[in-house]
């Protein structure tokens, strides 16, 4: 799953490609696929936890998007729209693999005290400098893996892919308050995991208590 990260896509304006693709330009659509395939594959892997399923989700997502392009409403981002398709496909995969058929992104949400923080220690100024690019990638990835699935996709879309809270809600079919409460828990849990790697040497948990 790991190799070198792909070049940054910052500043990519999808709108002209979407407009061309809707007029029937297949090359413009293929360009959109190239832009988003890695992100969709990552999301699908995080939800399904299975490479084979993630590949199916990836294909289904873009084939469906191609087929139903005329149904895409220009008032949201194309990326948000395909994420929604991908999430639905991924959940269908999960349902098929489980016998209870009751999988959704709403499951197993503790509304209780999981925002409790245990590890409280200041970090280095540039904590990531302590690790190589590869090590850092491993640390960040494995920390996300430990999140509950319901938190994982919210965090991935909101904080890694940089969608707005509203876009994340739309993509996942959740309410804005649900996105916010999951995001908070995800952020706090990741903060706690990363503190083990990034805390200032000599500083320990509860040092400030």
């Amino acid at each position: 799953m790991h190799s070198t990260p792909v070049p940054s896509q910052a500043g990519f304006d999808e709108a002209p490609f979407v407009a061309q693709a809707r007029k029937g330009d297949d090359r413009a659509f293929a360009e959109l696929v190239k832009r988003y395939e890695a992100k969709i594959f990552r999301l699908a892997q995080h939800i399904t936890q299975n490479r084979e399923d993630a590949e199916d989700v990836l294909q289904e997502t873009f084939l469906r998007a191609y087929e139903h392009l005329d149904q895409f409403q220009g008032n949201s981002k194309f990326y948000t729209w395909i994420v929604r398709i991908a999430v639905n496909q991924a959940l269908m995969k999960l349902r098929r693999r489980r016998t209870d058929k009751s999988v959704s992104l709403d499951e197993s949400i503790d509304t209780g005290e999981d925002t409790v923080t245990r590890e409280i220690a200041a970090w280095d100024e540039d904590p990531e400098q302590r690790f190589s690019r590869e090590e850092l990638g491993e640390i960040l990835d494995s920390a996300i893996q430990t999140l509950a699935p319901a938190y994982r996709s919210v965090f991935l879309l909101r904080d890694v892919d940089d969608l707005s809270t509203e876009e994340t809600a739309e993509a996942l079919g959740l309410s804005v308050p649900a996105v916010k409460s999951r995001l908070l828990r995800a952020r706090l849990q990741l903060r706690e995991k990363l503190t083990r790697y990034f805390k200032r040497k000599g500083d320990d948990a509860f040092a400030y208590m």
């Binding site: 792909v6 594959f41 200041a122 970090w123």
Partner: peptide, 24 residues
């Protein structure tokens, strides 16, 4: 305590922001 939590949560978000996916 809350200062440290706020600061390290902010850094957590910064580290993850824009983390590119691995190529498929």
């Amino acid at each position: 305590n809350c200062w440290v939590i706020a600061d390290t949560t902010k850094k957590t978000i910064q580290i993850y922001k824009g983390m590119e996916p691995y190529p498929i």
